[in-house]
Design a protein around this nucleic acid. Structure first.
Length: 262
DNA sequence: AATGTGAGCAACCGCCCAGTG
DNA sequence: CCACTGGGCGGTTGCTCACAT
């Protein structure tokens, strides 16, 4: 028995949504809320695929959407988040209220990408296009410890050194914060806190989604919101430099716990 | 006015993953 | 443990429109 399709394609409309379809979808969700997308089209009297309904609602019909051009601030944020997260449009969208992943993705591909290229910046790596690849050295990847219980000994140190070899690098240095990343396989969060307490360094760290200001995210793993604490096999990133990933000055350490190993 | 071309964007496709029985 | 489902995501497509020729 194979996987059943999400809808019967022969009996579904495709292409642009009509005003009537929009109104039906809005009316149904207002009355019943967002529920099972698979059964929604039939219940709402729409000849559409459930996925299509979901996409239409999330990207265009949701009442909290902000329409119109992106501001300079939003554009800067997108560039900075993209330099950190890559094409994780949904994560980026979570940081920009009223914007959808699809909208950001389109804006990136049509505007920002071209703008960066015209500035001589590779939109994928956020580094100078003319920059020799040899200038970036990744060193010191070490595994230590063989006890399963000793998480501290399972630390993986990955230090990225951006070696300055020409004038372009000096320009690049101004564009990107200087990151010195320490990645580690860490113990469960409560264990780590105990260890920190032991050293009189109680952690007030928050997870990545919380640090981005995303409220009630399902990705939250720090327990500040859902109280679940952290899971095993977490890669945490301590940004040791005096600037966070947005290039903003910071005094303390940032701890990003949701960059989990998969 | 007709045609060509490129940009912008809405929508679709297919894959992935977590949840469930 | 496995099969299946629903939902989510990123990549891609193709339509529309503005502008140039």
């Amino acid at each position: 028995m194979g996987r059943s399709p999400c809808c019967e394609k022969a009996h579904t409309n495709k292409g642009a949504w009509t005003k009537e379809e929009d109104e039906r979808l809005i009316a149904y969700i207002r009355a019943h809320g967002e529920g099972c997308w698979r059964s929604l089209p039939k219940a709402a009297g729409l000849l559409r695929c459930g996925k299509s309904c979901r996409l239409r609602w999330i990207n265009y019909l949701r009442p909290d959407l902000k329409r119109g051009n992106f501001t300079e601030e939003e554009e800067e944020l997108i560039i900075k988040f993209h330099s950190l997260l890559g094409n994780k449009w949904s994560l980026i969208a979570g940081r920009l209220p009223g914007r959808t992943d699809n909208e950001i993705k389109n804006y990136w591909n049509t505007h920002i990408r071209r703008k960066l290229l015209s500035r001589g910046i590779d939109p994928t790596t956020h580094r100078s296009i003319n920059e020799p690849t040899s200038t970036q050295k990744v060193t010191t990847i070490s595994f230590a410890g063989d006890s399963k219980d000793d998480y501290q000994d399972q630390k993986i140190n990955i230090k990225a050194e951006f070696v300055e070899t020409n004038k372009e690098d000096k320009i690049q240095e101004k564009c990107l914060p200087d990151l010195n990343l320490e990645l580690r396989i860490s113990p469960p969060h409560h264990q780590q806190n105990q260890q920190l307490d032991h050293h009189h360094q109680r952690s007030n760290s928050i997870c990545f989604t919380c640090s981005l200001g995303i409220q009630n995210s399902k990705d939250c793993s720090c327990g500040k919101i859902n109280g679940n604490g952290c899971s095993n096999n977490i890669v945490s990133m301590n940004i040791i430099a005096g600037y966070d990933f947005l290039g903003l000055k910071t005094n303390g350490l940032l701890d990003y716990r949701t960059l989990e190993t998969k």
